[in-house]
Design a protein around this nucleic acid. Structure first.
Ligand SMILES: NC(=O)c1ccc[n+]([C@@H]2O[C@H](COP(=O)([O-])OP(=O)(O)OC[C@H]3O[C@@H](n4cnc5c(N)ncnc54)[C@H](O)[C@@H]3O)[C@@H](O)[C@H]2O)c1
Ligand SMILES: NC(=O)c1ccc[n+]([C@@H]2O[C@H](COP(=O)([O-])OP(=O)(O)OC[C@H]3O[C@@H](n4cnc5c(N)ncnc54)[C@H](O)[C@@H]3O)[C@@H](O)[C@H]2O)c1
Lengths: 206, 206
DNA sequence: CTACAATTGTGAAAACTTACACGAATCAAC
DNA sequence: GTTGATTCGTGTAAGTTTTCACAATTGTAG
């Protein structure tokens, strides 16, 4: 009775959520259909219906989906009805950009700690928090019950810091370091490497 | 005789390239095997061999792959043997971080133009280039033969700027704006949205 | 009340992707 | 030379994901 839901399905849910929110807020829509949603996202309507059907029956034949209701359901599925404390590791260019990024807070991700090992950066005020010494990493992560981290340190220290994060109780890491991270199987990792993305695209540029 | 190579294969090639380069530079290796490469990347050796076999026979039984040779081949396949001029649109936090990011230059991506529409930012020196007015977008893109752009503007202007980029001749866009972009079918788009990535991971955090 | 258009949820088919497993090649050791 | 350990490239099987297509339901218009 335990249905294992494919990760590829899970990874589309935040996209649906994002577009549904936009449809409601910016276009003032109250309902939508799988066809309309798909057209806005370049995804087939059948795919959207199939994806959602893994979790329940959220729509009505003839009518479509009530946006607010579906948003609420998706947020529940993705565990977004609570707030998440997040640590940023690395107070460099990218660490600054991410810490200032308002969309995190809007979606319930609170960046409650930033760490660096550069004495020149430790103590720096960044928005409403202060850059902490890496020496305090484990202590702060435990105290603030931080389960998610964003890794924005150089590649050559990314693995060792990952190990420390995992040992300290972090369960999900979004890494911008251009290196594959080895973690235990129950730890989530997500990567972002613009160079890799650019290199994929150049293939198609004759 | 025209073999269509799956995009999912293409998207792994930059990852192989990245790790091969690392193996050569940091571990001083001259050769490697599909098994070793796979172990470093969490990918099966069969997958790596199958992927590479789409393009030719680059390895030797019993020995594996000569790293330098394979790197050279991958760079050719991905059209990385030439240099690419890149425009950054939006001189905000993220635009600054990306423009300073040295890895682009290392890989042959030259950020040769940055644009913004904020008078306070136009004229600002950013590394060795100057932030230009959006009014000059089409002219500069044409003159510098720019085919790739990185989009780091607010979501509500992302589509209209995309349309201008495409009209000006840009063929590939890496977008950080949290919105799906409508483009003609021959235009490449790649997205990066940390909120979406975080929301995927929270699903797995009970 | 009926006819019609819109739309869902879903079983089955099709398409795509990954994993398996093996012949053939290579090299080192003896 | 022969043996044994490696490793590739690939045909085939297995597994995953997407698409198709349709019965069932809903709302609207006459
Ligand atoms: N800048 C970009 O646009 C960009 C884009 C994608 C990925 N990246 C990657 O993200 C990471 C950070 O990039 P950045 O541009 O912010 O670099 P950066 O050099 O500006 O910042 C890195 C920060 O990490 C800190 N640091 C170094 N070693 C540390 C350690 N052992 N413990 C704690 N902190 C440490 C440094 O003091 C610095 O503040 C790099 O891996 C980079 O490859 C950067
Ligand atoms: N900051 C982050 O860490 C982060 C991460 C992921 C995605 N994003 C997304 O990337 C984009 C940029 O983020 P940011 O934090 O750099 O924002 P920002 O506000 O710092 O920068 C946006 C820049 O775009 C410029 N701009 C606005 N309208 C413009 C127009 N019509 N033409 C040209 N330029 C225009 C602004 O003047 C500003 O300089 C946003 O879409 C954001 O959602 C940001």
């Amino acid at each position: 009775m335990i249905e294992e839901i494919p990760d590829i399905v899970i990874s589309r849910l935040p996209i649906y959520l994002r577009e549904l929110t936009r449809l409601a807020e910016e276009e003032g829509k109250l309902t939508t259909s799988s066809h309309e949603l798909g057209k806005h996202l370049g995804i087939s309507s059948a795919q959207i219906r199939k994806d959602l059907s893994h979790f329940g029956e959220f729509g009505k034949q003839g009518t479509g989906y009530h946006i607010n209701y579906l948003v609420q359901q998706l947020r529940q599925i993705l565990h977004l009805t609570r707030e998440w404390n997040v640590a940023v590791i690395g107070a460099g260019y990218l660490g600054h950009a991410l810490t200032h990024y308002k969309a995190f807070l809007d979606q319930g991700f609170h960046i409650t700690a930033i760490f660096d090992n550069d004495p020149a950066k430790i103590g720096e005020q960044l928005d409403d928090i202060v850059v902490q010494d890496m020496a305090d990493l484990e202590k702060t992560i435990t105290e603030l019950n931080i389960k998610m981290a964003i890794l924005v340190v150089p590649a050559n220290v990314a693995q060792e810091i990952t190990d420390r994060l995992v040992d300290a109780g972090v369960r999900a890491i979004l890494s911008y370091a251009p290196i594959y991270l080895k973690v235990p199987p129950d730890i989530q990792v997500s990567y972002s490497d613009p160079v890799v993305q650019m290199q994929r695209m150049t293939y198609y540029l004759a």
